[in-house]
Design a protein around this nucleic acid. Sequence first.
DNA 1: CACGGGATCGTCT
DNA 2: GACGATCCCGTGT
Length: 204
Amino acid sequence: MTYPRLGPSFYQNTDVVAVAQSLLGKYLVSNIDGEHCSGLITEVEAYRAPDDKACHAYNNRRTKRTEIMFWRGGVAYVYLCYGIHHLFNVVTGDEDMAHAVLIRAIEAKEGLPVMEQRRGIAREKPQLTAGPGVMSKAMGITTAYTGHSLVKPDSSIWIEDRGEEWPGNEIVSSPRIGVGYAAECAAWPWRFYMGNTKWVSKLR
DNA sequence: CACGGGATCGTCT
DNA sequence: GACGATCCCGTGT
């Protein structure tokens, strides 16, 4: 059974907050090192230059790292956090719009044994993929994939719509995690997660 | 269960 | 030279 991949028109939507919410319930899929893994997206955060101080590209600041965020929607933006964790984002909007959605948690669906092996965890539990760093680790995603296409037929990472219905009124919003440095923007409720699952990151 | 701190390095000042 | 869109483990209760 194969499912349609989300295409350019989905990612090129210029409303990154709307895209973030509509990513809930979709399937993130990776085919890395010959291993097929997938999971239901349960938690996301939106980041939007130029006005969002929590966004790496705040004020449209271009650096070698943030340049990827200015690309047309439909590519991955992966960067290293705290020297250890690889955080996976989906670039959205038009060219020169530095918008992205951080995928923070998934509910693992396929490739569980590989994910557990990559994580060093013996049995299935939310700790496997709930949290942006551990999600990437379980899926095999590293900074090597920054700039990687999500829409080309031969890409290693993509997102599928499997047509599964789930009640959109179960979306919960909250301030984003770990952006307290971003002054007034820190309060923007741009973190979204499914209210009816335990597969979300812990509040800290 | 809450809290505190260490790990670890690319990126920008 | 400082710090971060995090995670894990140890300690104490």
